[in-house]
């Protein structure tokens, strides 16, 4: 009998603690599969965030180093500069990446730091109980935007991925979604592309993944995939925003 579904080697046999229908579970598996397929386990280091994925090191069977909330790209810089032979990735939520860690993220990208960021955009602060995130869309209700996000009070959703795509140091910048099985497969390909960019030494690579948080969106898992496709993808269009294929001089 042919085995068609097995646990990636890079995932420990620990059941995920994530809520049912959470995008983190899907994404962890995708990242692990890519690491396996690219045979990177012996040289990869992951930097999980403060956020729902803070315990990512309980699941990934690779070297992992915690970072304080938002500081992932700075920690990753320290790693990459001292061990250029290693493959370094940060795994960050929207609060981590685009609020408290905006400076670290933008400057790492702008330096063309040869690292990869996997940016999980669920438009809320999951871990702390569903507060407003920089990426919360207009009208979206959260525990700290109970009237729905208003542009004149809470400001606009921040499109950090678009901003980063304008930076010369960024080599590969793309946004994907977990809304459908096809999009999940596309996400996996995109992550692979990002790691390939790092392997080729081309500069900073970023994959933003639109991801469901049924718990804090306060809807069912099924509805959350619909919300993802119908609302979030409208605000955050999918696609590759930047792709550099040749190394730049100094």
């Amino acid at each position: 009998m042919k085995k068609i579904f097995s646990r990636p080697e890079c995932l420990k046999p620990t059941p995920f603690h994530y809520c049912p229908g959470c995008g983190h579970s899907i994404l962890h598996r995708l990242v692990a599969e890519v690491i396996d397929e690219m045979n990177l386990r012996g040289r990869i280091i992951g930097i999980p965030p403060a956020g729902c994925a803070v315990l990512a090191y309980d699941y990934f069977d690779i070297d992992m180093c915690e970072a304080a909330h938002g500081r992932g790209c700075a920690v990753a810089t320290g790693f990459k500069r001292s061990r250029p032979e290693c493959i370094i990735f940060t795994y960050q939520g929207d609060g981590d990446m685009a609020a408290i860690g905006t400076a670290e993220t933008l400057h790492a990208a702008n330096r063309g730091e040869n690292i990869t960021s996997i940016f999980v955009n669920n438009a809320v602060y999951g871990m702390t109980g569903g507060q407003m995130a920089p990426t919360t869309i207009l009208g979206q209700k959260t525990t700290t935007s109970p009237f729905g996000r208003r542009s004149n009070v809470e400001g606009y959703p921040l499109k950090i991925t678009e901003i980063i795509s304008t930076l010369p140091g960024a080599a590969y910048v793309a946004r994907t979604s977990l809304a459908t099985p096809a999009k999940v497969m596309a996400t996996k390909k995109t992550i692979k592309k990002a790691f390939e960019t790092q392997l080729a030494g081309l500069g900073y690579s970023l994959v933003e993944v639109l991801s469901p948080c049924p718990t804090n969106w306060k809807i069912s898992s099924i509805e959350s995939f619909k919300y993802l496709e119908e609302r979030l993808e409208l605000e955050y269009p999918l696609g590759v925003m930047k792709e550099v294929t040749t190394e730049k001089g100094s």
């Binding site: 930097i47 700075a74 920690v75 500069r81 001292s82 400076a103 670290e104």
Partner: peptide, 26 residues
Amino acid sequence: RVFLQGESEIASINMVLGAAAAGVRA
């Protein structure tokens, strides 16, 4: 060796942390 001007003191100390975790003197 590596000299890098960080974008802030917060970034710099966290770069030090990354390098220390990677096993070098920082």
